[in-house]
Simulated assay, not measured.
Amino acid sequence: MTTATDTYESVSALVRRETSMIYDAGKEYLVEARLRPLAAAAGCTVDEYVKRLPIDPVERRKAMDALTINETSWFRDHAPYQVFSDVLLPRLLEARAATRHLRIWSAACSSGQEAYSLAMLLDQHLPAGWTHEIVATDVSTAMLERVRNARYSAVEVNRGLPATALVRYFARAGNEWEIVPRLREHVSTRHLNLAAPYDGLGSFDLIMLRNVLIYFDQETKHDILRRMRPMVAPHGYLMLGSSETTLDLPPDLAAQWRREQEGRVQVHRPATGALT
């Protein structure tokens, strides 16, 4: 007889195999809440639905999308965006004066609020004649579709978005708000599991890897940070979430990064080839 514990352990193992993310004990309520609508649509119980996942790739993808959705908001935590505008961007403008082009990676982008928050700041602060690209990646195909559609509900636009930004960068689209084309054209999407290779992404002036490492085990976290190092362009930056730290890195990995405190925000730069 299948128990609730068996079902949860099965789901946890599947999520880890598919995404390398960890669902610790105590999150049973979250798993059930996110899978119940999918099970109902499939005409079965949650237990029956979970048994179906290993042999049904379509439902498995739906389940992975549902289980990897993270909380997000516009200009989340505020301070990192302020540091980007006031400190990091002026330095990057100086460093990239020859090319006048910036590349930013919004890793684990969820529904796109981080990527578009950055696009708003660049629209406001980037000098004339400069170009930029924001690459938004996520393991959830459903979330990437939302980034491409760039439509948000009234509830979502009320989560951290200044009223001036709503007026300037959104247009009504039925019951939703749609981001204007001039921002959308700078944001591209790519399906990516952070625990998998980063082939073909190129290097970036800023990588936003915020509030996602906490979902991985220590070994995977270290592997991600090790493979992030060559993705940061010379003079570029890596920014982690406020609840994340690299203080527990093994010596060889710690030596690859240089931590700097900018106000209340800690940023990371490659230990070699950085600005002095």
Rank of each mutant, 00 (worst) to 15 (best):
E185D: 14
L67T: 09
N149M: 10
P162E: 01
D56N: 13
T72K: 07
A107I: 10
H191N: 10
I69R: 06
L122C: 11
L249M: 09
V167A: 15
R226D: 09
A107N: 10
T141P: 02
Y8A: 09
V139S: 06
R227G: 03
D24V: 15
T3N: 02
M228D: 01
T246K: 10
A33K: 09
H268I: 03
A107F: 10
Q256R: 14
M239L: 13
A150Y: 06
L166C: 08
A254K: 12
A108W: 02
D199M: 09
T68H: 14
Y49M: 11
C109N: 05
L118R: 05
K51M: 06
E133P: 01
F84G: 00
M231E: 03
R210P: 04
L67K: 13
D123S: 13
A98P: 08
E94M: 13
F204A: 04
G241P: 12
L67V: 10
A107V: 13
Y116I: 10
D65P: 02
V11L: 08
R34S: 08
S73T: 01
D24F: 14
D205L: 00
Y81F: 15
T189R: 06
E260V: 14
R100H: 09
R227C: 00
E48Y: 14
V265F: 06
Y29H: 15
H78L: 13
T272D: 07
P250H: 06
S73M: 08
R264H: 12
L35K: 11
Q266N: 15
R60L: 08
N193T: 03
G112H: 06
Y49C: 12
K62W: 00
R259I: 07
D24P: 15
G236H: 01
R184P: 13
T189D: 01
G43S: 09
T3K: 05
I104C: 05
E48L: 14
E178Q: 15
R182G: 02
D205V: 04
R227P: 01
W257F: 07
A95E: 05
G200W: 11
R146T: 09
A79N: 07
R17I: 10
